[in-house]
Design a protein around this nucleic acid. Structure first.
Length: 480
DNA sequence: GCATGATCATGC
DNA sequence: GCATGATCATGC
């Protein structure tokens, strides 16, 4: 590329996009040449900087310190984002997409439309590269290039997310922000772990730095779209598939996504499983997950058949990573069962040394939709029968920061023992410890094994919430 | 009665 | 066939 002026029109998104395709399959060093890399003042190590390297050396676009989008004439923001390759060969999202630092002092005076996030990120050029440990940024290969214009319906949900984050800061609770507070757009932690926290306008408590980001779950759906389109893609078509979606854009004008969903449960509060089946005109089942099935059916409302038994597959749940959890409790409110999550992916735990990028962090900072069914008043514990349980409450929940700290210790313990090849219940947290979370087996049967990154096979274990912890969560909600 | 281990049900 | 969410079954 020596001596070549970049052949694109900086006022045109289409032209910038065309030009970006030259990156696919190559690294920056291959494209601009080693001499230029050697002479560059930019560093290949450490965090950040890749976007700047692309802008300066590949696009040869003068870097400005303006607050707007990177390509200001075209109104286009440039974002580099990492992928990782699994042993199976599949490409996966490495992390959330960090968009814009949150300035606690100024953001409280903004509306969504005047916010820098909105001005910058409504149209982005996303360049996916393959992340490799200990490899200089000059040598990372680019894989996909995408123009991502955030769809109108997503923007509606993101607007609510933005407002919820800003409201929290206005209440003087910037230090209590969590990625789980919101659906698509999240306030993610940013900066070093031991870095000094910052001031916030409505409280004297200092708060860690945070940035607006699109959740890993959201980025996973972007990646799925790109994979389906080929190595480069433009999201200028309407992406929402009505067969997969839970709410439509008209309903979102009547309230937030979460309000719409909670509203669907309201008419059934107090009714038993059998009564709800009757109302919905469905045949009662004897399946052991029948409570979960009916909870999904209620949440789905009039949505398509493809998601009515499992709203986790809906567009909105996929993009937000929200998890519906059904909880059954005795008449005194005590939760009957522990709550399980997916199996521990030992490879992931082994390879990833960053808590904030871990799968467990993503699961536990998800937004949860708890749906509680309770034994009728006066019934004794030994009369417990799923058919009689009554819908008590449905609410969205986020794990509070102090419990996320506990979760980090839980993860540290799991990771330490996976690294030491000690994948056994005698090393992990158990329920007796009463530490909110524990580790327990889960497989098809006792012979169902998983690969051990240290070699060989081991039993499958998974992450659990202790039932007492879930009882606490439910009670705190019901007492409000 | 509870902790732990084991398995079921569903959907892709 | 497998991953995930949910619940069952056993033994102390």
């Amino acid at each position: 590329m020596d001596n070549l002026r970049p052949a694109y029109d900086k006022t045109s998104i289409a032209s910038i996009f065309e030009y970006s395709k030259k990156l696919i399959g190559h690294s920056l060093r291959e494209i601009v040449g080693d001499d230029i890399v050697q002479a560059s003042r930019l560093q290949g190590q450490g965090k950040g900087g890749l976007e700047q390297m692309l802008e300066e050396l590949f696009f040869q676009y003068p870097i400005n310190s303006d607050p707007g989008p990177d390509f200001k004439e075209a109104g286009l923001e440039l974002k580099g984002t990492g992928l990782k390759r699994l042993i199976s060969g599949e490409l996966q999202i490495k992390e959330r997409l960090v968009c814009d630092m949150i300035d606690y002092e100024t953001v409280v005076n903004e509306t969504f439309e005047t916010s820098l996030f909105y001005i910058k990120c409504q149209i982005m050029l996303l360049i996916f590269y393959l992340y490799e440990k200990d490899v200089s940024k000059w040598d990372l290969k680019f894989i996909y290039t995408v123009i991502w214009k955030i769809p109108e319906k997503d923007l509606q949900i993101i607007r609510h997310d933005f407002e919820r984050i800003v409201e929290k800061i206005r209440r003087g609770e910037a230090h209590l922000l969590s990625e789980g507070d919101t659906d698509y757009l999240a306030a993610c932690r940013k900066g070093q772990k031991n870095e000094n926290p910052r001031k916030q306008p409505f409280s004297c408590v200092l708060a860690p730095r945070r940035a607006f980001s699109l959740k890993p779950a959201y980025m996973r759906t972007v990646l799925a779209f790109v994979k389906q389109q080929g190595e480069s893609a433009v999201s200028n078509i309407d992406l929402s598939q009505p067969t997969q979606s839970l709410v439509d854009i008209e309903e979102l004008k009547t309230g937030s996504f979460e309000e719409v969903i909670i509203g669907r449960f309201r008419p059934f509060i107090g009714l038993s499983y059998l009564e709800i089946c009757n109302r919905l005109g469905v045949q009662p089942s004897k399946a052991k997950n029948r409570i979960a099935i009916i909870a999904n059916k209620i949440a789905a409302g009039k949505s398509a058949k493809t998601i009515e038994n499992n709203v986790n597959n809906s567009e909105e749940f996929q993009k937000s990573g929200i998890r519906l959890k059904t909880v059954t409790s005795y008449s005194n409110g005590r939760v009957k069962e522990d709550t399980s999550f997916e199996n521990i992916d030992y490879e992931e735990v082994f390879d990833n040394d960053e808590w904030l990028d871990s799968r467990l962090y993503e699961i536990f900072t998800s937004r949860f939709l708890f749906v509680q069914f309770q034994q009728p008043n006066g019934q004794r514990q030994n009369e417990f029968d799923l058919d009689n349980l009554e819908l008590k409450t449905a609410f969205f929940w986020t794990m509070p920061p102090q419990d996320i700290d506990t979760a980090e210790m839980y993860w540290d313990n799991i990771r330490e023992h996976v690294l030491n090849n000690e994948i056994s219940p005698r090393y992990f947290w158990n329920k007796r410890m009463h530490r909110k979370f524990h580790v327990r087996p889960k497989g098809r049967n006792a012979k169902d094994l998983a690969y051990n990154p240290n070699g060989g096979m081991v039993q499958k274990y998974c992450y659990w919430f202790n039932s007492e912890y879930v009882t606490e969560i439910i009670q705190q909600h019901n007492n409000f």
